[in-house]
Design a protein around this nucleic acid. Sequence first.
DNA 1: ATATTAAGTTGACATATGTCAAGAAATTAG
DNA 2: CTAATTTCTTGACATATGTCAACTTAATAT
Lengths: 214, 214
Amino acid sequence: MYLHDELKLVKCFENLDKHELNYLASISHKRDFQKGEILFYEKETPKYLTLLIAGTLKVYKTDSKNNEIVLNRFRPNSLIAEVAVFEGMNYPASAVFDTAGSVVEIDFSKFKNEFLTNPEVAFNFFRSLAKKIRNLEDVISLNIVLDATSRVAKYICNHDDALNMKNNELAKHLHMSPETLSRILKKFAKLSFLEKGSHGYELKNKEGLTILYE
Amino acid sequence: MYLHDELKLVKCFENLDKHELNYLASISHKRDFQKGEILFYEKETPKYLTLLIAGTLKVYKTDSKNNEIVLNRFRPNSLIAEVAVFEGMNYPASAVFDTAGSVVEIDFSKFKNEFLTNPEVAFNFFRSLAKKIRNLEDVISLNIVLDATSRVAKYICNHDDALNMKNNELAKHLHMSPETLSRILKKFAKLSFLEKGSHGYELKNKEGLTILYE
DNA sequence: ATATTAAGTTGACATATGTCAAGAAATTAG
DNA sequence: CTAATTTCTTGACATATGTCAACTTAATAT
């Protein structure tokens, strides 16, 4: 598929006309990545505005004990770290592909002149920024405001896939050790909020869990 | 002072012409607050786009143990919680005046139609959102990524006023107990990074402190 | 089906930080 | 300057969560 056709599929650009899309394609190039490849490291300087068009990208920081703190997992059609590009700062976190994927890298200064003055595009840019703010606020709520038990409760209630994940994976998402998670899940089972089925736990009483974090 | 004159002083609106300012003033009203008064509580629904024009506003969340987590301290000429207004969501945190102050409340839907299509204003709106994202990232770095010691070190290096604050206040900023802070400062004095003067500690070796959090 | 490997669980213990209480130091008031 | 009040410091202890190691269970391969 041609780059301008791929760009057309991106929500942010759906209202651009053919001419604009061609121009956008002319200041962009596509790059493909394998699972596990790094898109950028914290503190590097962004060279382009980056748009994820395929795969899942994990953005994370590493704490003093080498634990990963996942700030975001991006799905396709997301702008990545646009604040850093916009403000001319370095990447505040690192990004790695969770699956194989692709990005489009766009020459930002040209993009800014040509497209950010377009209210449609600007509006979508707002939406993208707003979404990130909400996400960061969630990260803060989850990791600072709540203790481990409430954190697990909230995550299970808000993510249908939580109980299908491997315990290990879920613990990473929740930024706690697998042992702690295991103990909390056991406690929830004892309280009949969960029940241990043949393939992991099943949700039995969402109400009960909700009370724990509200 | 008339409202449109006050609005003119706001960076975001400095390039609006007289006519536009008058219109903006017509869809706005000013409200004054005493120190300690609440501007809004978490989970309330925003009614207006809010612009702080005087005083200091503290935005905070409360954790399960009733500790305050300060997300932001706004100075004049800041848009407040514009994401919540923009996205039609409830306030994600509470806001209280640290000093006496004033805000201008703007009818958002009219503002959006009339001004957000103006590239100048939109650009400043971006800047405001970008600044908030950076701030939230800092909150995360400070509170999740770093341990107490690194947190104190970083805060002292990045905030010249840190050592002039009351220990109590500083501890709140750093989201730790005054006792823990006291112990860490003592440790820094022992390492000769700080020295205890007649009025609290003085910074002696910034380099040394920097190493602790980088 | 059995062997092998990976994942989850459990208990014992370690660690960081919070909590409480008493006393010391500093600030403010009289 | 002394008394009163507030803030700071210190030690003892509490608590949440992490770490390690042994064991159990589940998944996968032969």
